[in-house]
Write a protein that binds this DNA or RNA. Structure first.
Lengths: 223, 223
DNA sequence: TAGATTGTTAATCGATTAACAATC
DNA sequence: TAGATTGTTAATCGATTAACAATC
């Protein structure tokens, strides 16, 4: 297993998304130049990134289905991963209904919540179980991955329970930075991070629009 | 307005999340060393990052409420931003119900969908309107930001309509990389990107667990 | 004062870009 | 063949880290 630098690893899901989309549309080959344009990076960087993943074809480019398959191998998307989700609120329900994770090998086998009104029901065909049974079920079903969709205030406690029950990976959607032992994989998803960056750019744009804005390349964008 | 390097800008929302949480808990000061530990970066980098944003206090650290307020200014979170959302499926409904965006100045004033069963209803007190009225409403209400939560196949067309109606920023949750003119801000959110990285780490972990794994610092993590 | 912490400089490190030979 | 494109090397660029003087 060749290892991949952190910078490349961060871009690999974007390559994957774009290439899977191209494959869907029946595209067979794509050049580094074209891929670079879609990703907003230099063609040289595309060739360097992919050099550790797949072999291109001289004069033709990269074979789309092969490249998709190789990225799946490198990222480990091929092997199925079962997960438990904790928190059947609106975000939890949205993730349960979202079909896009199947492609990534994720199967959410059960959801857990403390609300008695939800327990026993099914969301997108996934059963909602009592939070009290959580640790026990994790051990019995040997589930290694937990998804957190509870409010911020409850998230750390849920994470602690996941760690205690032996889970290896935590995917956290609550807006807090969770802490866990170093041998547990924690990924803190921050839905508002992207929004912040839009706000920042929007702010810059409003100001340059106000103050006359020279007719730079790309057009002024007044509308 | 001091400008911020791309690397710092990418970290600023994480500083913000952590500092807002510390403020919530009544913490008054925090050192670069402590912040660095929470973010997983060097204390030296924290000082460098914040040097362009706020002044620390020698021997004491950074004043939490002041730092939060300054980051809000820099990111432009203070000024309210109205947005339209297109696609009232499960993801769209989850975003409409999510209260965490308020803090970032976002107000979703209406949702749009093509499904006649939804039109006229309200989700989290936000009206669902007919997609046919979209362009007209954007112009009349001078809405500058659009949120896309339709299926992948429909996303580019929705984006094109947003551009045509004069929107300045597009926040896309459909799993495709959208294209738009350079004067329009586009942010492609990839919910599965984080999942990919967990899969990659999990894969590495499974292999090292199989093959004996030296008792390195941090413990073996068998459970 | 002594000690803790910031702010900043210089050194290091890693990532990106430019250029071009190899190749089909 | 001529031409397009990969793969790779060297050069450049920017970001991170280490060190330490300034300071309260």
């Amino acid at each position: 297993m060749r290892k991949v630098s952190a910078a490349v690893l961060a871009r690999l899901p974007r390559y994957y998304q774009i290439l899977a989309d191209l494959r869907e549309r029946g595209r067979e080959f794509v050049s580094s130049e074209h891929l670079g344009r879609l990703l907003g990076v230099d063609d040289s960087l595309v060739r360097k990134d992919l050099s550790g993943v797949v072999s291109g074809v001289q004069r033709v480019g990269y074979h789309v289905p092969t490249t998709v398959a190789r990225i799946e191998e490198v990222l480990g998307l091929a092997n199925a991963k079962e997960a438990f989700l904790v928190g059947a609120g609106s975000l939890g329900r949205a993730l349960l209904r979202y079909t896009g994770f199947e492609q990534y090998g994720l199967k959410i086998v059960a959801a857990f919540d403390g609300d008695p009104a939800l327990i026993g029901s099914r969301i997108a065909n996934t059963p909602v179980l009592c939070l009290g049974e959580f640790e026990d079920m994790v051990r019995r079903m040997k589930i290694r991955m937990g998804i957190i969709t509870v409010p911020a205030a409850a998230a750390q406690e849920v994470a602690d329970r996941m760690v205690r029950s032996g889970m290896m990976a935590i995917w956290n959607f609550a807006p807090v930075a969770l802490v866990a032992p170093p041998d547990v994989i924690v990924r803190n998803e921050n839905l508002a991070a992207g929004l912040s960056l839009i706000c920042y750019e929007l702010q810059g744009k409003m100001q340059s629009d106000l103050s006359g804005e020279g007719a730079g390349p790309g057009g002024g964008g007044r509308l």
